[in-house]
Design a binder for these strands. Structure first.
Lengths: 165, 165
DNA sequence: AATATATATCTTGATGTCAAGATACTCGAT
DNA sequence: ATCGAGTATCTTGACATCAAGATATATATT
């Protein structure tokens, strides 16, 4: 089936036949799909009273395992936002009682962010909902295709994640 | 090579062995890669004095072909933002002299947004820069792999683009 | 022709994000 | 011990985005 990127690429080939726009076949689809996923997630989380950014922070802490705490810096690399944004997010989550800030015992510059029991529950509940939604989206592909897709994407994400991006 | 999503998935399997987190192998990579691309684009465009959102609007109009005009509604489906955001974007681009607003002759509710000659030049220049950057990112894959990846992604984007998403 | 429904765009107010810089602490070199 | 460079977090101010609703016009139904 045709998608919006097929139309976009066809338009460029008509308007700029001198350019090779093949890269857009992959990367425009990545960007557009991410935006669609954002919208879908926003809808899914609103049933749990969570914003997507709240989910991102809470589940990062949840994944860390007991006692569910990370430094703001570790949260940055997981969520790919700037430090100012993370300070703001932590403030708001703390005000809602989903995380708390503790002094880092080994570095007095530092802070540790810890999930509260309620924060942990919210993370667990909404993860299950997200996975159900994602499974529905991925039903377009066979299991083998999903594996292929994941492997191809990994080749593109790895340089960003490993080089100091 | 391992990426951040490999670590993320491993962490979930340790913390929540009861859940099947396979969907994250694909969709978390899509979301994270899109964020990396956003950052890279912001950097690339700043050399041309353009923001990513400006690029998105200008190139949508450029692709439309002479006389380079679309309705705000058509721009919405291409850029996946809300109508309020688009009004705001058009205002700012008009103030910079890159687009102009014209009344739609066939529908008095409507408006047409048209690229100015300078807007067209800026779109053309920055497109070439973007393609160069994207080619470098995609050098991780062979041509055949890029084709496979595009085809797999299309299966996921097509439902969003065709059903009234 | 009159009315109801649908459509296209804009306005508003709240909120989230970013870039840049400030602050406070650590650690290695002298 | 002291200095200087590096690191971790926070603050600030400008700006972009969204959701919801307002306004004006078009189109379908009777």
């Amino acid at each position: 089936m045709e998608d919006e990127v097929d139309r976009l690429v066809a338009a460029w080939r008509r308007e700029r036949p001198d350019l090779d726009v093949e890269p857009l076949e992959v990367l425009s689809r990545v960007s557009r799909l991410a935006r669609h996923l954002d919208r879908a997630r926003r809808l899914a989380f609103s049933e749990h009273g969570l914003e997507p950014w709240e989910f991102d922070v809470l589940t990062s802490l949840r994944r860390a395992g007991a006692p569910y705490q990370l430094s703001p810096g570790q949260l940055l690399t997981q969520t790919l936002v700037t430090s100012g944004t993370m300070t703001n997010r932590i403030d708001r989550l703390a005000k809602k009682g989903l995380v708390e800030r503790l002094p880092d015992p080994s570095d007095r510059r530092g802070v540790l962010v810890r999930l509260t029991p309620e924060g942990r529950d919210r993370a667990d509940q909404s993860l299950a909902g997200l996975l159900a939604q994602e499974r529905a989206i991925l039903a377009q592909l066979s299991q083998g295709q999903r594996g292929d897709l994941a492997a191809l994407l990994r080749r593109l994400t790895a340089p960003f994640d490993n080089i100091p991006g």
